[in-house]
Write a protein that binds this DNA or RNA. Structure first.
Lengths: 109, 109
DNA sequence: ATACTATATTGCAATATTACGATTAATAAT
DNA sequence: ATTATTAATCGTAATATTGCAATATAGTAT
């Protein structure tokens, strides 16, 4: 089917899955890492950095934008993308919480 | 194409993307959360918890197992799944590093 | 107005993912 | 031995994702 049964799960579970999915591609990781290094970045640099075609790059940027992780401001004819600090911290918090609220039992396999 | 160009990216980027992908589905989040709450778990509980068919549940469990996040021991005719503590901490570390090594510039959009 | 540059969108092909019914394998119970 | 019970695997249908060529859009410069 290829279609996730979101109605079976809680809002929080769907939300977290969506967050992880937004980053679950090496190109999108590479974009984020490049933005971190560069402080800011016009989109066309990325085409070279990623080694993907321009439309593909644009598509990955859109997914990150839709996830709220990055935001872009128009700079003449170029685009100025950078990480959305607020959303980024929100991601960090949510994931940190998810990974640290585990109580490992002694008597387990 | 549907085929990721992994050769364009670093080992670390591909690895991180794969980690995130393993958890990027609400059913797999739900499985992990249930394992955390229950301490341990036989697989058939999960079919009810998730509301998905038994083969679908089994498939998600396999993906988590392949990612190394959970491990299962045979318990008679049932399966005893639990979180792999070592791998879990490794995930937590890697993600924490990724999210905290960001230096936000002042002069950005 | 025309040409140039940078990014977005569209359309499409190939592969991946999600889900389930049917079947299989392996142990447990009668 | 036969019959449950539990979980894995196979096969398949439907949808999603990835990637690119072609095109569109929008601003810049001449």
């Amino acid at each position: 089917m290829g279609l996730t049964k979101t109605e079976n799960f809680t809002e929080a579970q769907n939300e977290l899955a969506k967050m992880l999915k937004a980053l679950a591609h090496p190109a999108r990781i590479a974009i984020i890492e490049h933005l971190i290094k560069a402080n800011a970045c016009i989109g066309n640099d990325l085409v070279d950095v990623l080694g993907l075609a321009q439309p593909t790059t644009s598509q990955h940027l859109r997914e990150l934008k839709e996830a709220g992780l990055i935001k872009g401001t128009i700079e003449g004819t170029a685009m100025n993308y950078c990480i959305d600090q607020v959303k980024w911290k929100q991601y960090a918090d949510t994931l940190s919480t998810f990974f640290t609220t585990v109580n490992f039992p002694e008597n387990c396999c």
